[in-house]
């Protein structure tokens, strides 16, 4: 199954509405490009790090995120110091780390469904251009559904091939798995259609509020 990067609350950081957190994040991103002083940005990073314990996110995560980025950061810093100046290198590194930490904090303290709700709100104005938030939410659900299924299919196919004494040819694995997955996708689409779901606009997905209930259309 798919895990999440979410850390359970409650905490003051969890309590801030998802939309505001994303706004602050955008603001921070812009500010970090306007401010060209590594010391100021480093101070910002310190504030972000202090928010981790406040949001009940293990401080270990700060380290993990930095470690994952380390090879790239070193590469960037070296080229930068070489072609530009050590100051520019410091600026880049602090900027990237601060933004990554801040974004990581938002992700850790905001639930999947809260993010999804913000997404739907962002998408709502696009309705005019034919974007259907409910359908997008449906496709997202499909992906979450298919990831473990694909893993299962890969294991089964691999076992079947091993039983026949076939080696580890990636093509001999990828092709049958892809075809099986496509067939399953057809089946799923049929099953959804047979129930008459998703034929129009908003009959799927999260925002109950939007779901207009027509009393006249209840069962006979």
């Amino acid at each position: 199954m798919i895990g999440t990067l979410h850390v359970p609350g409650p905490s003051p950081v969890h309590a801030v509405p998802a939309g505001y957190k994303l706004l602050v994040l955008c603001g921070l991103g812009t500010a970090s490009f306007v401010i060209a002083d590594p010391a100021v940005i480093a101070a910002g990073a310190a504030v972000v790090i202090m928010l981790y314990p406040l949001g009940r996110v293990p401080l270990h995560q700060v380290w993990v995120q930095a470690r994952d980025l380390a090879p790239l950061l070193v590469l960037m810093a070296v080229t930068q110091a070489w072609f530009d100046s050590p100051l520019a290198a410091a600026l880049t590194v602090t900027r990237v780390l601060t933004l990554v930490w801040a974004a990581g904090l938002v992700t850790a303290t905001t639930g999947f469904s809260a993010m999804m709700a913000v997404l739907q709100r962002i998408l709502a104005p696009l309705r005019r251009f034919g974007v259907r938030p409910a359908r997008i939410a449906f496709a997202l659900t499909m992906t979450v559904r298919f990831v473990p299924l694909l893993q299962e299919m890969i294991q089964e196919t691999r076992a079947a091939q091993a039983a026949r004494g076939m080696g580890r040819n990636p093509l001999a694995l990828a092709i049958p798995v892809t075809i099986r997955a496509l067939r399953l996708a057809e089946g799923v689409a049929e099953a959804v259609e047979a129930r008459g779901a998703l034929t129009d606009d908003d009959d799927f997905g999260i925002p109950e509020r939007r779901h207009k209930e027509k009393a006249s259309d209840t069962d006979a």
Binding site: R195, G196, T199, F204, T218
Partner: peptide
């Protein structure tokens, strides 16, 4: 899924 499609 099916019940919502019927707009109940």
């Amino acid at each position: 899924l099916g019940l919502k499609a019927q707009r109940l």
